[in-house]
């Protein structure tokens, strides 16, 4: 692994650990700002939709929430520097620590903020504010995304195709996403039901925005019904076979690792065209597919019947391509 990549991973681990310290800071800073306005006791427990049924002193509740946010922060820092933990395990741990940290900070903010507004802790009604706790639990996704992603080892997973030096190889396949077809048909039916009467009555202009949005949605979904996937000297390309719109291009020299793998929709955010931070995928079903990891640590996955052949071809072409400048250097000292 290059020094640059190692440095990037260390920075990401430090930032992930730092993000777990943010809930602690939120609790401390909010207490510091509110300390003169806080009543002696704060609402701390609700059994139902009514007012709080228990309260705690500011010091006790502050200590409790500092513990709820501080323990994940300390654990996160420890995990970041502890050797021998896999990147996958580290990311999972960051996620759960972030969930606890986020909820800890939210609990403090709700108890302190609501009691400060009402005055009497036993008259504080939580109501819809409970949603804040659930939203705060999503904080776990932040250290999870910041942490370094698990890396594949090219030599372990990649295969090659033996070509004659004068030969040129290319792979192409057209795949059909029946799921996109059904969604497109569903949208056409929905659009006809919603906007059909207005169009027939000659009032299409009144609902032009909705009609345009629906038309764009149908075209977008329909463009994924038939896809042509090509692997050649230019890299990997996914083009809509119906509209000939390029949907994805990965240059050969940008490819770091390419492998055939078993794709599980749950790991890629579900079925269809998925876009996540640092990752995107066209998932048509649970089963074989191609995963390309770029040198900028982005991943792209696509469901294919025979991903081994394009994976081996791209790995071969990438290595042959990388060898060309070296050969030129050798022949032109």
């Amino acid at each position: 692994m290059s020094n640059k990549r190692v440095s990037a991973e260390i920075v990401r681990r430090v930032l992930a650990a730092a993000s777990l310290c943010v809930p602690v800071l939120v609790v401390i800073i909010s207490w510091w700002v509110w300390r003169d306005s806080l009543p002696a006791e704060l609402a701390s427990h609700w059994s139902g939709a009514g007012p709080a049924d228990d309260a705690m002193s500011v010091g006790a509740l502050l200590a409790l929430n500092l513990g709820m946010t501080g323990v994940p922060a300390v654990a996160g820092v420890t995990i970041s520097v502890w050797p021998g933990i896999s990147a996958r395990a580290r990311r999972g741990a960051y996620f759960f620590l972030g969930v606890f940290g986020g909820m800890g900070a939210a609990t403090w903010l709700l108890s302190a903020g609501l009691t400060m507004q009402v005055g009497d802790p036993y008259e504080v009604v939580l109501g819809a504010w409970v949603i804040v706790s659930f939203v705060a639990a999503g904080y776990g996704i932040i250290p999870f995304l910041i942490a370094p992603r698990p890396r594949l080892k090219a030599t372990d997973v990649e295969k090659r195709i033996d070509f004659a030096p004068s030969a040129v190889g290319a792979w192409s396949q057209t795949i059909t996403g029946n799921m996109f077809l059904w969604v497109a048909i569903g949208l056409i039916i929905l659009g006809s039901v919603i906007y059909g009467p207005a169009v027939i009555a000659g009032r299409a202009l009144d609902q032009i925005v909705g009609i345009v949005v629906m038309a764009v949605a149908i075209v977008l979904v329909a463009s994924f019904v038939r896809l042509r996937v090509t692997a050649d000297w230019r890299g990997l390309r996914v083009v809509s076979a119906i509209f000939r719109i390029p949907l994805k291009r990965i240059r050969l020299d940008a490819i770091d690792v390419v492998e055939a793998a078993e794709l599980r929709p749950a790991e890629w955010g579900g079925w269809g065209y998925r876009i996540m931070p640092g990752r995107s995928a066209v998932i048509l079903r649970k089963g074989p597919g191609l995963i390309v990891t770029t040198k900028r640590e982005k991943q792209f996955a696509i469901s294919l019947d025979d991903p081994e052949t394009p994976a081996a071809l791209l790995a071969t072409l990438r290595d042959d391509n990388a060898a060309v400048p070296e050969m030129k250097r050798e022949s032109n000292p």
């Binding site: 004068s166 030969a167 040129v168 190889g169 792979w171 396949q173 052949t309």
Partner: peptide, 9 residues
């Protein structure tokens, strides 16, 4: 499918 052509063939 995979296509391979060899100009020296």
């Amino acid at each position: 499918m995979l296509f391979v052509v060899d100009a020296s063939s």
